[in-house]
Structure formats: C-alpha cells, structure tokens
Design a protein around this nucleic acid. Sequence first.
DNA 1: CATGAATGAGTGTTCATTCAT
DNA 2: CATGAATGAACACTCATTCAT
Lengths: 208, 208, 208, 208
Amino acid sequence: MLKPLTQKQIDKLISVAIDAFGEKGYNGASINKIAKDAHLSVGVIYKYYEDKEALFGECVKLSLEYLEEIFADITKNDVTLESMIEDLILHLQEAARTHPEYFRLYHQIIVSGSPHPDKIAHQIEGHAASAYSRILAEAKDAGVVRDDLDPQLFAFFFDNLMMMLHFSYACDYYKDRFREYCGDDIMDKDEHVREQLMKFILAAISTR
Amino acid sequence: MLKPLTQKQIDKLISVAIDAFGEKGYNGASINKIAKDAHLSVGVIYKYYEDKEALFGECVKLSLEYLEEIFADITKNDVTLESMIEDLILHLQEAARTHPEYFRLYHQIIVSGSPHPDKIAHQIEGHAASAYSRILAEAKDAGVVRDDLDPQLFAFFFDNLMMMLHFSYACDYYKDRFREYCGDDIMDKDEHVREQLMKFILAAISTR
Amino acid sequence: MLKPLTQKQIDKLISVAIDAFGEKGYNGASINKIAKDAHLSVGVIYKYYEDKEALFGECVKLSLEYLEEIFADITKNDVTLESMIEDLILHLQEAARTHPEYFRLYHQIIVSGSPHPDKIAHQIEGHAASAYSRILAEAKDAGVVRDDLDPQLFAFFFDNLMMMLHFSYACDYYKDRFREYCGDDIMDKDEHVREQLMKFILAAISTR
Amino acid sequence: MLKPLTQKQIDKLISVAIDAFGEKGYNGASINKIAKDAHLSVGVIYKYYEDKEALFGECVKLSLEYLEEIFADITKNDVTLESMIEDLILHLQEAARTHPEYFRLYHQIIVSGSPHPDKIAHQIEGHAASAYSRILAEAKDAGVVRDDLDPQLFAFFFDNLMMMLHFSYACDYYKDRFREYCGDDIMDKDEHVREQLMKFILAAISTR
DNA sequence: CATGAATGAGTGTTCATTCAT
DNA sequence: CATGAATGAACACTCATTCAT
C-alpha cells in the first residue's frame, strides 16, 4: 500500500479484473487487456500479484468481502425472523443488481479449479452459514420454527435458495432461466418475487 | 490401431473430454491434452469431430441425454406428489454421484466461456421445467398444493433447490460447502438429506 | 505397369494430380484430396510414388512430354520459316486452350524449389531450344534471317514470347493480364493475335 | 532486446520473409521459420503484422515499390525511343541481379496460392503497362514506330519480353533455362544480351 | 522502479505419411 | 497386397510472463 500505485489505481485494477474474470471466466480473461483497461502496465500488475491466479484470488477475496457485508448488515438489526429474511432477500436483490460483477465472479470460483481461491470462498460461506444458523437457532428457541428440521441442513437449503436468487439477478444464464420460468417481466417484479420466496421459506420452516 | 477406433476408444475419448471440459471449462481444456489422456492422436479426434466445438457439443449432448433420462424415469411412475419428489431427489443424488462429470459439464455451460451456452443448457432446463410443471399441476389439481403461490415462481424455487442439490454432490466447490454447512459426514447420509429436503419442500408447498 | 493399378487408374490419378498441383500449387494441393478425387486409396499412391514430390515430378514429366509433342509435330513438316512459326503459334494457342492444366503445371515448376523436377523440365526446354535453333539456322542459311543476331539469344527471345503466349491462354493471372493489355475480348481473337505476333517476330528477325 | 525492434531488425525480418515467400511461396513459407531465421520471436511478428497475410502484404508492397522505382526512373529521362528501351533493359538487368528476391516474390504472386494475387500483382502490371504505352505512344507520334501493329498487342509482346528478361536473371529455373539456351557464361554478358534484345525489339517495331 | 515490447510455450488444426487390417 | 484410418510433426497464432530500458 506504500508502493507507487495509488489505492485508486488498485481499485480500478481490481474492478476491471472482476468484470473481466466474471464475464469471460478465468481462462477467457486476458491480463494484458485488463492492464490496458485499467490504464496500467502489465509489469506493475506482476509486481503486486505473483501471477494470474493471484490476481484472480484477490478479486475473489474482495468480492466475497463485499458479500460478507450484506450478511453482516442484516444480522445487526435485531428483529423478527420474518423481517430478517425479508431484509436478506431485499439486500440480495439490490446487491445483485448494483454489483452483479461480484456475484458473477463468485460464480466463476465454483467452476475454476484453482486451489487457492476456494479457501477464501469457504471462509465467507462459513460466515453465511453461521449467520443463518444463528438466526434459525434463535427462531427455534422462540418457537416459531418447527423442530423436526436439522438446523444445518435447513441453513443449507436456505442458503441454496439465496445463492440461486442472487445468481438469477446477476448472471446472464440464470437471468434467462429466471425469465423462462417466470415470464419476461419477472425482473421488474422484485417485490412479488420477494413476497413469494418468503411465503415459500416461511411455510417450509414454520411451526404449523 | 490403424483400423477404426473401437467403441471403447471413442467412449474413452468422450469420457476424458467430459472430464476435461467439466474441470477446466471449454477454454481451459486442451484438445492435445485430451488426445494424450485418451491415448489417441490429435488427428483422429478431428476425423470424428469437426473441431473443438463439435467435440464439446458431443460431450454436452451425451450429458444431456443422461440428465434427460433421470426426469423421464421419474414421471413414468404415476404416484403421489410426495413419492414423485422423493424419487426425483433420490435419482439426482444417485446420478450426481455416479456421473458427477455430467453435472460438472452442465455447470461449465452455465458459466460464460462455453460456446452456445443458451441453446445447449436451456434444453436441460426445458426438460426439468416441464417435468416440474407437470408434477405440480397434477398436485394442484389434487388439492394437495396451496393455491396462494405463483406456480411459476414455485417451480423456479423448486428447481433452484434441485440444481443446488446435484451440484452439491458433483462439484468440488459445492461439495466442500455442503460439508461445511452440514458436517464432514453429510455425504454419507443421503437418506437423511433426502428426508429433510422433502420435509422442507412439502411444507413449503402443501396446503395446511 | 504390371501392378494392380490399371493404366486407366494411373492416368486418372495423374490427371487429377496435374489439375490439383496446377491450380493450387505444390503446397496447396493435398495428396488425400487427390486420392479421393481419383477414386484411389492414399496408400496405393505411396506404393507408386515415393512421396508427394515424386508424384509432382511425374506430373511434371508427363506434362512436359505433352508439350514436347507439340514441338515435334511442327518441326516435322518441312515448310517455310513463316509457316513454321504460324504453325507453332497456332498449336500453342490450341494446346493451351484444350489442356491448360499442363501449362499451369509447367508454370508451377518454375516456382517450386523442388530440386528434382528441374532436370526434367530442362530436358524439354532443351528440345524446344534445339528445335528453334534448327529452324533459325536453316532460315539463316536461306538468307531470310538477318545475320547480326546471336542465334541462341534469338531462340531464347523467341521462346520467351512463346512461353508467355501459352501462359496467357492457360493461367488465370496471365489471362487477366492479357485482357488488361488487349481488351476483354482478346481471347476471342486468336487469329488476330497470331497474325500480330507473327508480324512482330518476323520483323524482328528478317533481313530487311 | 525488450525494447522496440530496431529498424535493422525489421528490415532483417522483411528481408528474410521476402526470401522465404519468394522461394517457397505463400503456403510453403512458415512464419515460425521466418521468425527463427530473423532471430526474432514468433510473437513479435504478430505485434507488427496482424497475420501471415499482412506480413506477406508488406513484403509485396515493398517489392512493388522497388519495381515502381525502376519504371519511374526510366521515363524521367526524356530521350529517344531507343535509349528508353536500352535504359529499361539495363535497369531490369541490374534490378533483377541486385534484388532477385523481389522478382521471385512477384513471380510467386502470379502463380496461384498467394492471397489476393489479382489486386497485388496487377498494380505492378499497371505501372509497367502505362510506362510502355507512354513510351510507345510518343514513339509513334515521332513516326519511328510502324503503324500496322495493334498498339495494345505490341505493348503486350514487349512486356512479355521484359518479364521473361527479369525472371531469367532472378528465378533459378529461368536462370538455368537462360544458360541452356545461351551458354553457361550468358549471365556474364549483360551488355551483349541488352544489345541483342534491343536489336530484336527495335526491328520488330520500327518503320522500315 | 515502472514500463510495455519481446518472448516462447502452448493452442487448435492440418495433412503427408504409415501400417494394422 | 490394397486400404484408408490413425499418426504426429508442423502449422498459424495467442497470451501469461519476463526483463532491457
């Protein structure tokens, strides 16, 4: 951080790289093109990052940190289970719209067999997992959640729905699929989607 | 070795290719490496497949056919909604275990970088979507499904859970995530997972 | 010639090969395509010809033999210098029209650095050279040819004109060039060309 | 060696490329081999030239420019028809000796296999054709040229002789042929050749 | 030290040649 | 022995990485 590259330049680099990796994949993205788009020399990138994989790793790390914030925000506000879930969905919808590139990159991690990024990614998964588990444990104690569900599996299913939700707002393929399932104007009905997903989840987990 | 490739050799080629494409993606996989791993010459691949895209296409086609069978099997047995869903989950669990490479390839198609991702992958979606719609329509007619849910969104959420399920058995990243959520031995408890997922889904969709 | 391939098959092969080499050049022509077009297996070609170069050499040899015949024909008829030249031009015009492929191939030899074919080609050049020299020597003795011309250079200039003439009827590039110089309908005025070329040559060589 | 290629290196590259293309033709020449011979990496060629065709194009362009100079030089000196022709022959002899590679390349363009042969080569023709036409038109006006010759065909025959002349000094096959016609020492008697060719041409075209 | 042009291993693909059948 | 599918070196071209400036 004390090196000749300003923070602004690094931010630009990472931002350009996240876009590139997210759109074209690890192999499809070109370091040289990233350098050009970030108005940087290739050389300087290699001063900061060992190789392509390291740059990819950094992008991933930062994207995940961003995602982390979303979850952090939610669990801060101590409210009802229902409002928590609604909040989470709302945040994900908004985040996936304003920063689809982070989600797209997240999606690329899964597919790129790089050994390094995984660790970072799982770190953030861990956060989500524990966040969800906490929410659910509390809800269970409050008696609003049925107790014949394995809380871990529940959190897992829940996160699955959340992941697919944000991918469906951020990634082209999933966007198409979303429209195919729900009609071309589904992307204009965030509230309806939110409401329905809440109904789905609440019914799934609530005591009768 | 100078007379036509045996079926075994072709199978080996396709199997190697599916692995390669599934692991490294379309761009990351190398035809020359595939040839070497399949103990074949590069040239012979080009006798059987016009180009890399054609080989990829063949891999996709075969994977697709395999996935189709799963859905075909399920809807054949005319049974209750509950047993249908159970059947589906069971089949997906088994399929994702015995042929994870098909699901990995499927996943690669979804992330950018593969040629014609739309055409190819939407075929699978189409099959799944219509299978789900049918199941659900029947169930609704039978009055076992609540009617305050948008049927399209419902099918969408349902498919989301199914996709995440098979990816969680087939793709390394998702496998790790699965274990992180549910414990290292979760992959040995298929029945438990199935049972819990059924509970989750049935509660979500059933009339009270 | 006693081998399983009939003479007809060999003829077909050579004919196809001459077309291919003449049109696409040595490198551009494909042995496999030649085999296919000649309804022969690749293998059998390699039984008859050591390699691609040998096949090319054979094509060249046969083409040149064909050209040789033209010259042989002419010098047989003992006539005046004038009629000889006219005969030669006429023959070349006809030959270049009926068998442009031989001339096209001849043209390719010049350009292909193959060491072998040259010898064969020069052989035929030798024939032409001596034919021309003879004609001119006789004419000189008869006093119709000026004697301040080096007979060898004369024969050379004369042959140059003849070569360019047949290339101009047989090879695409030279055909275009011909038309560009003399108008689009020049190919329909063989007699005019012949007459003019004779005037040109006779004036060049005759005693005043 | 990591800062821009020096002009010397580029010149070397083009020179090597012209040799390669001129000797083996467009298809026969290998970019990788050219790079090696020019002591350059393959990659750098592609920094300077879009693709093989572009490199070939540059070689052709330079050769063309050189050939143009020859014709430009000649017509500058306003002299008699005779001296013009002598000048032209002299220039062609010298040029074909000092830069045979340009003429060899020119010849390669003519035979099929090169990209865009028409566009490229006709440019040269155009220059020559217009040069000849001008020369002859002037000569005709001056009454030194007989008027029973089709001026277009005349220019054509004239150019034919000039083309064969320079090819005979530049291309191996034609060189051998030249020697066979005129003796092994013919290449050492440029003046004699020039004188004889002039006699030949002047007699062919002059009024008696 | 940052630069960015040069590098060269690696890519997809072709085709002259071989050799099991 | 003829066949023609298989072979694999070679091709044009790319791009992550290096290093002279």
